[in-house]
Each structure stands twice: as structure tokens, then as C-alpha cells.
Design a binder for these strands. Structure first.
Lengths: 208, 208
DNA sequence: GAGTCGTGCAAGCAAGCGCTTGCAAACGCC
DNA sequence: GGCGTTTGCAAGCGCTTGCTTGCACGACTC
């Protein structure tokens, strides 16, 4: 839009995100970013002025690339639809876990810098929240549960799983795909949307 | 034990944890740590040799201070017992959220440095896991749910709530105490341990 | 052909970093 | 009184950091 496309510019943004994810502000020095992008350090400053502006631009650029996976407008099979959607979401978070962790730590010191990346989880959460409302409205669930808390609970399970799975293997002995199915199954039971055939065998844990 | 007690030493450890939580390795420079502890920078090096050793010692020292809250050996009222326990745990995580975030980001670069702090969530999770097994064994719950996943789910909800509540207020419109009660209620429903009187009104959201 | 634009290169600046050295003062202990 | 331990203070080392300057070279346009 207002910013002219440029190979150099994009290479710098990409390098910034990569190094920033790997080691935060400390690892993402202007010399290293420039080298990673195959560009002279001076060029970096000519494009972005200050390092701070470069990082902000890189965060905005990165956040703009990611779209929120939609959930069905008309829920038919909540179990299958949710498992599919959660696996997608979990996989993405797991791939981005180092960047997410760095952004979380950085958020205290630079709230504005990370605000674009924070919109992503909020949108994903809203998508799930509104889906749960639709599930209830269509009569596929029952009970007096709070949709906001239910959404937060499932998202929280996925999030902490994606963040902690590699660091705490004893906490996550189950394969991630099976664990996700378990989370979804538990949530559906909690909101009174669990079918009988689903409860019996389909979502047992494989590796207990 | 093997390390002699010392006011100076403890002041340095405390200052290290504080500055490290605020801004990671970057903010926790030896000059700043010494100043925060009210001690000369040279004294720091005389005590700990290298900065790396100081940080490791500080992490171990801090992890040793925190004990895991026990859950009842004989579950009587899971709803009340879990809500109390979760509130305690949530409150502690929320207070330590900046330190937790920094450690998570730092864990990629220095896995050994942060391993003592990682034992804490694992122990807490085991405490909940074994409690859920007891709840099932005592006949207070029913169904074929996986206790490990159930524990991870509740812990994940608490964790992501404590981490994200201040950064994403739109995701957490409910007061934390009420949200926690909601999480517990949902989990108990999921594992077939929800009582009727509990479902009716006791755990409604206050601020919808 | 002149001029503009984007880039590379060499050099350098002040500041902060982890860490070291040498010396003096204060303390408790024999 | 002497002696070892602990601390403070001043200074400095080599290094990395963010950032700047000056100059030269190629590509493109008018």
C-alpha cells in the first residue's frame, strides 16, 4: 500500500522475524539481521531508520501474513469440525512457539511493538467463541455453560500444550493429535454436546 | 547446605531474579544487578565467578523457595477443593507472570539454566493428575476420560488465563475468580463429576 | 550525457557489556 | 597486635551494540 514493495525490504523483515524469534532483541542485532538478509548494515538503516522501527514493521508484516482459520457457519458435527480446526491451530502455534514465547517476554518492555501479534490469538479465540454460540443455538449442546470461558479453556489447553510439549515431555506423554482429540472431547462433554458413539471408543488415548 | 548463608549473596540472588524477570538477560546486567542489590559489581563476581553461574544459582534458589500446594488425599467436595486450589495456583502464576514469560523465552537459548523452574509446573500438574485419579477411584466421577489430558486441560486454562489476562482484556472479560470457577465447573462436567446444585446458579458468571 | 536512486564498503563514534586487577579499609579471630 | 576474610573503589581491557558519515559504483530516466 503506502510502502513500496522491495526485495531488500522483505528480506530484512523476514530476517528480523527469524532472528527475533530465535533469541529476542539480543540476538537480533542490526549487524546480524543485515548479514542474514544478505544486505549491508547501512542499507538496513536507510530503509527503516531505527532498529525499533524495523522490529515494529517486521511484527506488523508478519501478523498480516497469517489469516484466521474459519469454523463452519452451520455446525453439523462439532467433534470432527473442532478436532480438525484445533489440530490446524495447534500445529501453527507449535511451529511458531519460539516466536510466540519471545513476543510474550518482550511484551512487558515494548507493548506497542507486539500489539499486532496479539490480535491473532484474540481473533482465533473469537472465532471459537462464536462457533460455540452457534453450536448451542443449533441445539447441538445443552447446559448453562459460559461460552467465553469454554472457548478460553479449549484455547488455553491448546496453547499450553503447544508451548510446553517439547520442554515438559513428562507432562505430555500422549501424541499431540490424540491429546487434541481428548481436549475437544472433554470440552464437548462439558457443554453437553458429546454423542454416545463418540464417547465409546473413537477418542480413546492410544499411548496411555 | 554446601553454600554458606550470606546476606550479600541472597541480596544478589534476589536482585538477579527481579531484574531477569523484568527484562531478561539484557536488563539483568552485572552492573545493574549489583546496584539493585546495593553491592559493588566486583563483589558479584567474587561470589559467583561468571554471570551465567549467578543466573543459574538464582533460578535454583528461586525454584527451591516455592512449594507445591497439595490437594486433599481424600476428595470430598471436588468443586470446592479444586476451585480453592486453582485460585491459589492462578494467583501465584499471575504474580510471577513476567518471570515465567522470560524463562519461557530464555529456555530455547539456555535449557539447563531454566530446568529447575520447569520442575514447578510439572509437579503442580502431577498433583492435579493424581487428585483426578483419586476422584475417579472414589466414585465421584464417571466416564472414560483420560486423567492426564483432563489435568493438562485445566492447567492449560489456568496458565493461559494467568499469562494473557492483562495483555488481552477482551479475551477475559470475566473476573478471574469467576473465570476459574467456570473452568473448574466445565472440567467437572466433562469428567461426570458435576452436581446438580452446582450446575444451577452457584457458578454463573457475574459480569457477562 | 547528466542526474537521480539504490546499494556496498570502510571507518568510526559513544555507550554498554562481561570481567579483571590493584589497593585500601573494615571486620572478627587467635 | 597480627592476620585472614570480606568488601568498596577506581580504572581499565576487549568486545558488541545502535547508528552515522563519506565516498564510490552500477542501473535507470530524461
Amino acid at each position: 500500500m503506502n510502502e513500496p514493495k522491495s526485495e531488500v525490504r522483505e528480506a530484512l523483515l523476514r530476517a528480523t522475524v527469524k532472528l527475533f524469534a530465535e533469541g529476542g532483541t539480543k540476538a537480533a542485532s542490526t549487524r546480524r539481521i543485515a548479514k542474514e538478509a544478505g544486505v549491508n548494515e547501512v542499507t538496513l538503516f536507510r530503509h527503516f531508520g531505527k532498529k525499533e522501527d524495523l522490529i515494529c514493521s517486521a511484527m506488523r508484516w508478519f501478523a498480516d501474513q497469517n489469516r484466521v482459520e474459519p469454523l463452519p457457519a452451520d455446525p453439523l458435527d462439532p467433534e470432527r469440525e473442532l478436532v480438525d480446526w484445533c489440530r490446524e491451530h495447534h500445529q501453527r502455534m507449535h511451529k511458531l512457539r519460539t516466536l510466540i514465547r519471545t513476543c510474550m517476554a518482550d511484551h512487558l518492555e515494548h507493548p506497542d511493538r507486539n500489539s499486532p501479534t496479539l490480535k491473532m490469538p484474540v481473533q482465533v479465540n473469537n472465532e471459537l467463541y462464536e462457533y460455540l454460540l452457534r453450536v448451542r443455538a443449533s441445539g447441538l449442546a445443552s447446559g448453562t455453560w459460559d461460552a467465553r470461558s469454554a472457548a478460553n479453556m479449549l484455547m488455553g489447553a491448546l496453547f499450553s500444550d503447544a508451548m510446553g510439549r517439547d520442554a515438559m515431555p513428562e507432562r505430555f506423554p500422549t501424541a499431540s493429535d490424540d491429546a487434541i482429540a481428548q481436549y475437544v472431547g472433554l470440552l464437548l462433554s462439558a457443554i453437553g454436546a458429546k454423542t454416545e458413539e463418540g464417547r465409546s471408543a473413537k477418542f480413546e488415548v492410544r499411548s496411555a
